[in-house]
Design a protein around this nucleic acid. Structure first.
Length: 168
DNA sequence: ATAATGATTGTTTTG
DNA sequence: CAAAACAATCATTAT
């Protein structure tokens, strides 16, 4: 039944009700050689750089780190990561405003990441090229013009924001 | 034995 | 702007 106005595969029914709810997007490669057989496609030239800072953990991850510890503390027999993940996700949803400290920490992590990224890119700028087959070109050591990067380690332990307790 | 997977949500990243 | 990928974890599984 392909009517003349049929467009072959056009089925506009409810695009709003299921945007992209595929949790099966898990794509995480361990450090080393990811391309084995499940190579999605190296569309990006993200070459493996040992100096490349990984993405900063979101508040959820920060919370998860602690949650996993607690979860395993009460469930030492749990082995599946999916269990802790699901449990953490559920609990996370439970947290409506208690994630303030996590967000704060995540924000800090991100700040550091930006700094790391800056430094990383700087090194990349050294050899602004796609491929570096030979790195025997003496590592460029230019730490002369620091953009004001000195020790900035403060103990911000008294940064509590517990004013939002009952949001809704 | 090495590497990917599975599951969570949030942020970073790229298109 | 939006969609995709990836961030940690860790036992289990696949090649």
């Amino acid at each position: 039944m392909k009517t003349a106005k049929g467009k072959g595969a056009a089925r506009p029914s409810k695009e709003s009700l299921k945007p992209v709810d595929d949790r099966k997007v898990g794509k995480r490669k361990a450090s080393g050689k990811p391309e084995k057989s499940r190579a999605p496609k190296k569309e990006k030239k993200a070459k493996k750089d040992p100096n490349k800072p990984k993405r900063p953990p979101s508040a959820f991850f920060v919370f998860l780190e602690e949650f996993r510890k607690t979860f395993k503390a009460e469930n030492p027999l749990v082995k599946a990561v999916s269990v802790v993940g699901k449990a953490g996700g559920e609990k996370w949803k439970s947290l409506s405003s208690a994630k303030a400290p996590y967000e704060a920490k995540a924000a800090k992590r991100k700040a550091e990441y930006e700094k790391l990224i800056k430094a990383y890119e700087k090194k990349q700028a050294s050899s602004a090229d796609d491929d570096e087959s030979d790195k025997s070109k003496s590592e460029v050591n230019d730490e002369d013009d620091a953009s004001g990067e000195e020790d900035h380690q403060e103990d911000e332990d008294d940064e509590e924001e517990e004013d939002d307790e009952d949001d809704d």
